[in-house]
Amino acid sequence: MSWLEKPVKALLLDISGVLRDGDQAIVGSLEAFQRLQEIGIPFRLVTNETQVTVQKTVEKLSKLGFTSISPSLIFAPAPAVATFLKETLSRAFLLVHPNVLPEFDGIETSDPNCVVVGDAAEHFNYSRLNEAFRVLLRLREENKEMQLYSLGKGKYYKEEDGLCLDLGPFTAALEYATGADARIFGKPNPVFFHAAVQDMKMSPDEVVMIGDDILGDVGGAQRAGLRGVLVRTGKFRISDENHATVKPDGIVDNLLQAVNLIMSHYN
């Protein structure tokens, strides 16, 4: 197991597909999480969840039994892009889920000079997408940069009733229609991983990312200099084990197996 040859000093964990599926904790994830807390391995939760605020994510995890999680342990793209918008004095057209709008409090939305795309779910409709399209076209016609910011670019994710389209296809539609190049604020952007790693005062080669997304989690982490371990939970598919471009450093059945391997290898 190549990912265990060098000490694992810290972990990055995805939430959906690793800790939970929808409103259910994944088998073994609660036990694994408790063991991590007991042995004191530093970790951060890195997620492309953009349908709810970070605080709501904490509350949801707590109800499932994942206790002692503070918002500071969760790295999500909405707060990151909101900070960026404030720093750059940007005015945004927000194509996001209403539940995540509190993360954008204080952001000016009149006469937008950029478009922010999050996982709007059922709020991805023709009218809203067309509004975003028109904002970008107007910027181009005014010889201004078409600033399109996406809170991730995943293809799909898993809920209790099956796989669901993620925001990647909608971001790609806007790119195709306007010629804009989206700036990604979540996974797989290396900057996103590095922010969580630096928060733990670690270097990338000391940290392992555990996720169910072969491209966003594993491939993204590897490009950022981390080790990427794939779990056979969440949206995992058998074909991911022999992916054409991404070769995981390790593959485990679930988070519990990964934690047990780490503990047995270094005890």
Rank of each mutant, 00 (worst) to 15 (best):
R128G: 06
F133E: 11
E49K: 07
R35M: 13
G118T: 07
E31Y: 07
C114I: 01
F75T: 09
R44N: 04
F93Y: 15
P77Y: 00
F93Q: 06
L45R: 06
A76Q: 13
T57M: 02
P77D: 03
L61M: 04
E122Q: 14
T50H: 02
A121W: 07
F66K: 07
K56G: 00
C114A: 12
E38C: 07
V135E: 00
F104A: 02
R35N: 04
D111K: 11
F66L: 02
Q37K: 14
I26G: 09
A32C: 08
L36Q: 09
F124I: 11
P71Q: 12
K56L: 08
P79C: 03
E131Y: 11
L89M: 07
T50G: 01
H123R: 14
R44P: 02
E108G: 01
Y126C: 05
L61C: 06
S127V: 14
F66R: 06
E103W: 07
L129Y: 09
G106V: 11
R138I: 00
R20N: 12
P98W: 03
G28T: 10
V81S: 00
L85K: 12
R20I: 10
L137H: 12
S72K: 15
K63Y: 01
A32T: 10
K60Y: 03
L64N: 05
V135Q: 12
R138Q: 14
G118Y: 11
K63V: 06
E38Q: 15
T57N: 02
N143Q: 14
N48C: 11
